[in-house]
Nucleic acid binder design. Structure first.
Lengths: 242, 242
DNA sequence: CGAAGGTTTGACATTAGTCAACTCCGGTGG
DNA sequence: CCACCGGAGTTGACTAATGTCAAACCTTCG
């Protein structure tokens, strides 16, 4: 059965109003409950799957990182997500994949056929729930990304991106203020709906303002998390704030 | 069981590359297989549920339209979707709703508790598949919206919005060239990540260019579908085209 | 050492946002 | 019945943010 149980069932109260506080993109959590499966290693820039490929498997990242993206007919690219170790990718495709999954570096994934999944789901309610939850998280992440690319300034976009990475680190027990960026500026730009120049300039601005340190383009140290949060929040952009 | 079966299971071929052609936003299809449930009528501007409400029900729109949106702490608003009759809303929330669902006009919905859903899913594989498919469509729609707000110009955004409505009409058997907009300019602007002024100007431009007719701000007639598609596609924006 | 790819920086162009005025329409009440 | 009012939409002038183009700079890798 599809595990959508457990939420309390009461009538909606049409009164209260609880706007969400700034949730981060990249909200996904490690996917638990799947083991076995075939290991596959993909080199940097190789694809685990591409748009249009039959959706035969889902994958769990074991080491390395994947860049999940779509390309438009004219070549523009939108990065949808970055998959970290523990993340499950490929869920939600019905017949064919609607995205590409490219390794940003040499990456190891574990592959599970949809048959595996179905079988496991058949006799394991908790696993079902985990699957449902994973899809929900994808949806939440996608919606968060919509908000980011649609309604935030370049400063806010980059700041909230860094904060999201920081929170992900925190959840995984690594230092929240030492970020290693496993993706290129181009990936970041295409994720946030900016150009690489704007991303680069924004990083530089943050560095000059003492918010971050930057080494070798890839190692970010957050010096002033408080200020970074301000920059991400929207009150700091100069427009928008009441 | 969770119905994620039926896709052919073969090894990925890492060679082929099939970029998607312009898929539209608002891809969702009427949800089949649920009947019964309590009827609820909400007046224009009233909410079916709000951010933070416990996720107790899902809803199927029977008449009228809903505007699904999120608000940021500082008041900015991102419209995520417009729900039409036959659409299911509220799926994907785990504990609490992450979005608001507001009626753009007097609207009738049918309410189902998650218990209803679970029960039905328990002994009906096809229904399970429908649920999974509905969530996948939400995800696809959210991703399409990311592409639209992230990488398209104002012209492209409005054009693809109109095209999406047109296709939706076509799928539902109504005229693809006679669109009734059940939402305000403000809703459209917050959907596309634009201001109402820009939306208005773009409509005006389309009208002057003979692409559409516009009556009473609410009735759009597509006069030149071909050109509208061009405008939406990206090749017509003046930048981006190789 | 040289080439290639990624990154940074600068000067400039352009898009879309901002602010403000005006119009249009529907509803309400004298 | 008509005048007024308010909300939504339109239009215009101006501004600011971000994209564009071009060049220089680093690293890495052969």
């Amino acid at each position: 059965m599809l595990a959508i149980a457990y939420a309390p069932e009461r009538q909606e109260t049409p009164t209260r109003h609880t706007p969400h506080t700034a949730s981060d993109g990249l909200v996904k959590r490690p996917f638990e409950g799947l083991d076995g499966g075939a290991v596959r290693v993909v080199n940097a820039k190789d694809h685990v799957f591409r748009e249009g490929d039959p959706a035969s498997h889902v994958y769990i990242v074991e080491a390395g990182h994947l860049c999940i993206y779509r390309v438009l007919p004219d070549g523009r690219r939108q990065v949808m997500d970055f998959a970290y170790p523990g993340d499950i990718v490929g869920l939600g495709a019905i017949e064919a994949h609607g995205t590409n999954a490219q390794a940003t570096e040499r990456t190891r994934v574990r592959c599970f056929t949809l048959g595996d999944l179905r079988e496991k789901a058949h006799d394991n309610g908790a696993f079902c729930m985990a699957l449902y939850s994973a899809m929900s998280q994808e949806l939440v992440a996608a919606r968060e990304l919509v908000v980011t690319v649609g309604h935030r300034t370049a400063t806010e976009k980059v700041a909230s991106f860094l904060l999201a990475l920081s929170r992900r680190n925190a959840r995984r027990g690594t230092s929240p203020n030492e970020l290693v960026l496993p993706m290129t500026r181009s990936d970041i730009a295409d994720f946030l709906g900016l150009t690489i120049e704007t991303v680069s300039r924004t990083f530089t601005k943050f560095r000059h303002d003492g918010v971050i340190d930057l080494e070798q383009c890839v190692l970010v140290t957050i010096r002033d998390p408080r200020k970074l949060a301000d920059l991400a929040g929207g009150t700091a952009s100069g427009k928008w704030n009441a």
